[in-house]
Amino acid sequence: MTNFLRIAGRYALSTLREMGRMFLFLLSALEMIFKPPFKFRQLLKQMRFFGNKSLLVILLTGSFTGMVLALQLYYILRKFGSDALLGPGIALSLIRELGPVLSALMVTGRAGSALTAELGMMRISEQIDALTAMALNPIRYLIVPNIVAALIVFPLVTAIFDVIGIFGGYLVGVKLLGISGGTYFSLMEDYVEMKDVLLGFYKSISFGLIVAWISCYKGFNSGFGAAGVSKATTEAVVLSSILILVWDYVLGSFLI
């Protein structure tokens, strides 16, 4: 029993220490966002990395999510004789929930993992040490542009996901299942409010922060060798995905 408590205590302490390190890392990056010199070129490069390079995967997942939603919602709504509400149903599901969450998960899989691996490789090849030895702060050069880029790009990517999803739903609902196109869009206009759009926006911006923070932290503090980088990458994707879902619930419950 004592042994079990000792192990549990040690685990709890090391987890707390790790959480403390993660928060300090985030704080030092956030502090530097507002301090010059600003790295605009690096910021644009990272915006391209998070956004432009994730576009195909967002278009594909967005359209198919809308299409599947249309199929499933149509089936359910028809049972209640409310199939006319398909448009608002799809729009609200996408804007409030699925758009921010799924696009964040997709970008985590594509860009977050690549970011962790890149920073991990920079760590083991001493490129991060090289920056420090040149009296340049690696957090300013490597972390801040990623965090700012994610804060800008995630809402944009989510908006694209939502729009494509709504058109995917239109294709299935209107062109395949025979709902009126006018009904699909006009009821959407009636039911979707600004607060729904804002909820999606707040979610996407906070998911951007989570993904950039976790991916950067894990890569920046990656262990040595290929195994260290691989472990850091896996941890970054798993932890980001879990935190996205947990934060989605927390934020949703406050802003419902």
């Binding site: 090849s125 001493e126 490129q127 040490d129 090289a130 030895a133």
Partner: peptide, 9 residues
Amino acid sequence: VLFQGGALF
């Protein structure tokens, strides 16, 4: 500093 592997970016 000249690092072991060069540490070129």
